[in-house]
Design a protein around this nucleic acid. Sequence first.
RNA 1: GGUCCCUUCGUCUAGUGGUUAGGACGCUGGCCUCUCACGCCGGUAACACGGGUUCGAAUCCCGUAGGGAUCACCA
Length: 469
Amino acid sequence: MDQIITRFPPSPTGYLHVGGARTALFNWLYARNQGGKFILRIEDTDTERSTKESVDAILSSLEWLEIDWDEGPFFQSQRFDIYKEYIQKLVDSGHAYYCTCSPEDIEAMRKKAMESGGKPKYDGTCREKNMKTTKNAAIRFKVPLSGTTVLPDIIKGNIVFQNTELDDFIIARSDGTPTYNLAVAIDDMTMNINTVIRGDDHVNNTPKQILIYKALKHELPRYGHVPMVLGSDRTRLSKRHGAMSVTEYRDMGYLPDAVINYLVRLGWSHGDQEFFTRDELIQKFNIENIGRSAGVFDVNKLMALNANHIQTAEPRKITPRLMPFLTQKNCHPEQTDDLEAIIKTLNQRSKTLIEMADGALFYFKEPVEYDEKAAQKFLSTEFLDILVPLVERIEKLTDFSEKNLENPFKEVMDITGVKFGKIAQPVRVALTGGTVSPGIFEMIAALGKKKTVSRLRQAESYIKNRVKS
RNA sequence: GGUCCCUUCGUCUAGUGGUUAGGACGCUGGCCUCUCACGCCGGUAACACGGGUUCGAAUCCCGUAGGGAUCACCA
């Protein structure tokens, strides 16, 4: 086959939600896997509902996900001339006709049909009138009165539609603008799209598009309809199920690689593998393993995957993504802070970047603010006997590596006979203010000598002051 | 309601005629341990139902039920 050309055609009427992101992802991955092209197209023929803000939101979401496109974004609103040309062709060849029925007429028609138990479809009043160019008339596609239209779906298999089930749908509104089915078909055709992967809420539209292709004697693209993403109650995903917008996940501290991993895995599989890097996804993605049934969006699993990606990502890749969250918490690391070392102490214990930022705060906060209960319990006068000799030794260290840091502790343990378990917790409180933190040695190494010593000194005077008062 | 699609643990899924039906998330018992975690070992739990076809069905066929999508001069 020729080079694979796929596309993602969002309509700019809102943010990019996770379902849409998954569709984009499938198309993008398939194109990348096949060495093909991925085209971005903005479907803004509905000038009423389309907004510039939505376009920007969608674009930035895709960028955040690191889904890049080879061509576009194309805007349907700038291609009206092309649609006009094809609409005219359709009229000229007798595949479409002008219709002067008003929306009110149609509404009445529907009502009547419903009442008599019939199907609410256009009755064909203008179908054989053969009107010439008519002002303020919509244009309808002339659907065959009999026969079937087959959609050879590469995911679901052949789907057969009776043409009698379709009505003469409008391809151009009375103001001359094209409608969705027309614009999609013409765009896919003229952009040489040969593989269309989209949500299965489009299945019922597809025969209309196929009919347009056939009327224009154009070869069909391959269609693949992927099952939808559902909410926890198995209905279409909506706000009441929780966050939908991909930017919300960005803001909640998810890594784009984790979101991608989760979304692809929801509806596609590669044996038992759960964790995929972006490159693995590109390498292994295929259409054969896309599932046929709808899937429920599960934030828990997304978070588990996010934790895995945080664990395995290189700390230097995490740094820029963590920064905004630190800033948000009014925390501004200095040049001297070793962020990568800090991240290494946190990446095994953070499910999101927000958690990581929270866990990192103590590294930067000077002086240490003690949790009252923790200080009460651990920063006692007995601890002074351990603390003083410990600081002295730590101060003298030149090699501040994690391994070498164990020595001062060992020495103090030898002198005092106190077990490590009794030393670690007070030290932890002295250094972090609380009782929860990364391991003592890795934490001290990441904190650095200067902060470590000053914090231990701070604890020393804190204890002494407390004794006095 | 018409049309179309779907149906393996609570959830995501592996499975393509013969498996003790596997993995992951969740929940849970234990181990590890300087706190919290990570990790490791174990447990929990599924083939919607009914008929066929077959020596043998989660796997093939037909029904039933349930769920979803869609029926615009929206996309």
